[in-house]
Write a protein that binds this DNA or RNA. Sequence first.
DNA 1: ACCTATTGTCTCAAATTGCTACAATAAAAT
DNA 2: ATTTTATTGTAGCAATTTGAGACAATAGGT
Lengths: 231, 231
Amino acid sequence: MKGYLPHISYDSVVFGFAEGRLKILIMKYHNTGYFALPGGFVRSTENLNDAVKRGLKERTGLDKIYLEQFYTFGSVERHQPATMKTILKANKLPLKDYGWLAERFISIAYYALIDYSKVNPTPDTLSDSVGWYEIHDLPELIFNHQEIVDKALETLRLNLDRKLIGTNLLPNQFTMNELQKVHEVIKGEKLRRSSFQRKILSLDILKRHEKRFNGKAHKAPYLYSFIDNKE
Amino acid sequence: MKGYLPHISYDSVVFGFAEGRLKILIMKYHNTGYFALPGGFVRSTENLNDAVKRGLKERTGLDKIYLEQFYTFGSVERHQPATMKTILKANKLPLKDYGWLAERFISIAYYALIDYSKVNPTPDTLSDSVGWYEIHDLPELIFNHQEIVDKALETLRLNLDRKLIGTNLLPNQFTMNELQKVHEVIKGEKLRRSSFQRKILSLDILKRHEKRFNGKAHKAPYLYSFIDNKE
DNA sequence: ACCTATTGTCTCAAATTGCTACAATAAAAT
DNA sequence: ATTTTATTGTAGCAATTTGAGACAATAGGT
């Protein structure tokens, strides 16, 4: 317990984009072979959203993260005390102090969109690694974490056009082609180059910068950045 | 405590449609003048979703309800122990047994869509009335319940076209005009009759029945019902 | 028999999207 | 220096969807 709200946790699906693929952060627990989403708990006098931000800062080193709550998982089937007891034992943590971790939790799930290149994945005390995994090639995850990932991707897909969030997965400046690839990998389908470009530009949310000369033997693309406020 | 998960509650925004208006169920607490959304708590071995269904069944008498979770509110500002203590005092409930109600709660919010004509609003032990209020003409609500209502309506608006849910607010059979009014009142804008009709019919989700003769001096409209499964 | 309000549907204009084509161009190849 | 190659920016037209109005059909009143 020690200052945290009992039975309440959060899980986060941290999306990054690299090598043309959509990736998420997965933790591996010490000496168990168990894989899980990064998660945490809420202090007794802490805002839920702040708790999640705090946890993400610890795991990624990033401060201002695009973050969205998408579902709260509250089924009793989620509760698998044996799994958590195995993890505690592998970490030599006494049940008397840490047994509360093996109780039932209702977990609020968030997804985050971050610039892959800026992240410095940092394990916590229970885990010996935090790493990037391609979203369609994940190891087996504990509890219902695979379900959480699936729902995160589904929600991201639905929100992609409504909110203008693809840019959160890219560096400050990016080419139209990179943005299109982000959209394609989230939607899981190829998009027409000319239609995509026309659509995005008509939204008036991008600022055009100088070209990027990348040494390739063809016309150099313009760089764009996302315009936040436009009054 | 007594078998419930501490610090966890749910709130429900129950939508109904009557007199061309969108309404929701609001409870009034005994002897206090406090108004609130219908809510409740989760038993230690109960699915979150089942807890909400159980509560709605008690308040409305309905069994199969269209229900959707839309957000979990976890800010500390929600916590206003003085308000809850006033309610307990007005109900002559001793703090020693019921003080847990005045602690901090993280609340999972759901909205429900129901057939207004089928509901039988039933108060619980703390409240002396449950009644329908037009969504844009609510009394002042406790805690952050107004924020919850606002977010429920916003989510309903976003889901209206994506999911095919307008029919859940109407009786089994309804006219195209009634369905259009439901859409208009949720979106907060007038819709074109011919475009609306064309759009809805093209979805192939409605079955046409006989006409409804309502004694008015004009052409009688067809009745429709929602088709669930179509293979 | 005519009038009135509403319904179901058609039509054409306007806007959006799908798809192809083509000139521009950065650097490698000749 | 010229040609070649891969990619980019954008124009143009077809196909589709949506907006807006019009009109015949009709249930019941006058």
